[in-house]
Structure formats: structure tokens, C-alpha cells
Amino acid sequence: MAAVTTELTTAPPKNQGARARSALRFRIGRAVLLVLFALFFAVPLLALIEFSTRSNDLTGPRTLEYWRYIGQDPEIRTALRDSVLLALITSVVALALLLPTMVWVRLRLPKLHRVVEFLCLLPLTIPALVLVVGWAPIYLWIAYFTPAQFDSSPVVLAFAYVILVMPYMYRSLDAGLSSIDVRTLAEAARSLGAGWFTVMARVIMPNMLSAVLNAALLSVALVLGEFTVASLLNYDNLQVVMNNVAQISSGVTVALAAASLMFVFVLLFALSFVGRRRPARVIAEEK
């Protein structure tokens, strides 16, 4: 009879009882409010797209010039390449660091579970801005040891970004690990003669595919949108360059913003719809 209760709110009975009337009023009010909310969230996004295709202000003719410029400007192209590279490196390093550790803790060191969880979620509590202040002296050392030809390449930001993506990655992987019996799977594989590497690569990973994918996509989205750390440590990633270009041509910036936004939207929408499991809750520090 559960259907009955939901039915109440969606389909008012045909007779015009007080309940039916107030249900109708509620539905109209609900629709109006939802439209208002939708407007608040849609207008800025629509304005981005509108402005990226107008040559002057709103009265100017349509143009795709700014969009074309994204692909031509060498500075933007470098930043785009570096940011994508950075996103990939961050995802891979964070996965390589976290997944084996989490599996190992589950199998052999259950007592460390709370400690690892605490450490992984810690970056949620410490603002990225604070971490930047602490990273500054460390990055002086990193810059000192970086070979000259890679000088000022933002790829070294990966060290910091791994920390930033850790909470989200941890939640996603933890959800994945909780849904499979890691211990039994590992013991079964070990009893068949598999080494630890094989257990990880051939047994755990395939069963965790959606969680791993989830975690990786989240990290990519996060890194592509990161501004705080890069700008304050003076590295040129996508967002920093976008901000710089704004001083010269707002049209290109707007097109770039629209492009990067669409990319992240597609990424995350794919995540929430395609992945059967719901993504770990995202509360980014990137504001």
C-alpha cells in the first residue's frame, strides 16, 4: 500500500474536497518556487554562453571567434595541456596511494581504519588556503630541485592536489570497498596462489571499477577547477590563465569559462547518471 501515500501528493482525487484544493494550491506553489530556483541557477550559466557568442555586448552579431581563439592562443593551450596532465597525474597518484593502503588496512590492520579515515578526511576541515600557506616553503624546495627545463611547470602541483582530492576519493573508494567482501576475495585469490600484486590488479580492482572510476572522475573535475593553490603558489594552470586572460579579453575568458564549465558538467552529470552507485558527496574547498 506504499503507492497510496505517494499517490496522495501527486494525484489529487477528482472530488473537490478541501484536501484536493489545498493539494492543488500546494502543487502550483511548488512549481512556481521550483521555477524561481531554476532561474537563479540557470541565468548565470545562460549568460556565460550568451556572452561567449556575441562580438560586442548583447547587441553585437553572433560569433564563434572567442571559442576559436581558445584553440589558438599558445598560453591557453599550454595551460589546458598542463591542467589535463595534472588532473591525470593527480588521479593516478592518489589512487595508487589510497587504494592499496585502504585494502591493506581492511585486510591486515583494521585497527588503523579510524586513523586512515581521519587523515583522509582532514583536508575537508583545513581550508585549502591554510594549506597553501604551509605548502609555500615546501614548494620553495620543490622549485629548487626541479630541473631547469620544467621550471614553473604547474605539473608539480600534483603533490598538493593529491591531498585536496583525498577526502572525495576516500569516500568513493570506501563505499566501493564496503560493497564487496575484500577479505574473502583476497583470501580466495591467495589460496589459489596469487601474489599481492595480482590480488590487487586482477581481483580487487575489477570489482571496484565503478568506485575507482567515480573517484578518478571526481578528482579530474576538482583539479580542472582548482584556482586557490595554483594562483597563490604562482603556477599557471587553466583557472589562473583564465583569470589572467580576463584582464585582456573578457570574451575569450567567458568562452573559456563556458567551455571548462560544460566539460565539468558533462563529467559530473555522467557520473551521477551513468554510475549506478551514487557519487560520494562532494563539498569542494574550491570556492
Binding site: 500500500m1 497510496v4 496522495l8 482525487p13 477528482k14 472530488n15 474536497g17 484536501r19 484536493a20
Partner: peptide
């Protein structure tokens, strides 16, 4: 389930309106 017994009870309780 679905035979209407719960509906009868809910109508008696006034939690739903009768047609």
C-alpha cells in the same frame, strides 16, 4: 495487498478523501 483494505481504513481515518 491492493485489495482495498488499507484504503478502507484510511478513508475511515480521514487520511484520504472518498470519491
Amino acid at each position: 495487498s491492493g485489495c482495498g483494505k488499507t484504503t478502507a481504513l484510511r478513508l475511515l481515518a480521514g487520511l484520504e478523501d472518498a470519491d
